[in-house]
C-alpha cells in the first residue's frame, strides 16, 4: 500500500461518522520501491491529496521531509516533485495496521494489501 492510497482511505464502520480520517498507521514495515517518475501525473493528483495528512504521515514514518505547504511554483519545482514522487508513490507499507482515530477499529495491512472488510455487525 502506497501513501497515495492511505490518503484516500477512511473508516467506514457503521455510525463512525466523525474523526474517521486519516487512519493512524502503526507498526509499519516500510519498503522503498523505485517507480518511474511522471511529474505531470503528480501535478494532476495534487488537488486530490489531503496535504497536511500526507505531511504528517511522512513524518510519522520517518520519511524525508516534504514542505508543510504545496509551493506556489509546484508545477515547475523539480525538487519538490521528486520528493513528492518518493513519498507518494515509492513508499510502500508492506505490513502493519491502520487504526481509526474515532472508533478504534483496526485495519490490518498484509503483504502490501490493506484489509478494509468489515464484519456483518459493523456494516
Amino acid at each position: 500500500m502506497r501513501l497515495i492510497t492511505h490518503n484516500l482511505l477512511q473508516c467506514h464502520v457503521k455510525n463512525c461518522n466523525s474523526n474517521n480520517f486519516p487512519l493512524k498507521i502503526e507498526d509499519a514495515q516500510v519498503e522503498l520501491i523505485e517507480a518511474d517518475y511522471n511529474p505531470e501525473f503528480l501535478v494532476n493528483m495534487l488537488p486530490k491529496i489531503d496535504w497536511p495528512v500526507l505531511v504528517n504521515t511522512a513524518k510519522q514514518l520517518g520519511l524525508p521531509e516534504i514542505p508543510a505547504q504545496v509551493p506556489e511554483d509546484a508545477e515547475n519545482n523539480e525538487a519538490f516533485l521528486q520528493g513528492l514522487h518518493s513519498v507518494l508513490l515509492e513508499t510502500h507499507i508492506q505490513q502493519g495496521r491502520m487504526i481509526c482515530p474515532g472508533c478504534g477499529h483496526v485495519f490490518n495491512i498484509k503483504e502490501g494489501i490493506p484489509n478494509m472488510l468489515l464484519a456483518e455487525h459493523e456494516i
Binding site: 492510497t5 482511505l9 484489509n115 472488510l117
Partner: peptide, 12 residues
C-alpha cells in the same frame, strides 16, 4: 484493497 465494493474509499 481488500474490501466490499468501494468500502472505505468514499467520501474521499
Amino acid at each position: 484493497l481488500q474490501t466490499s465494493l468501494v468500502g472505505s474509499l468514499l467520501p474521499r
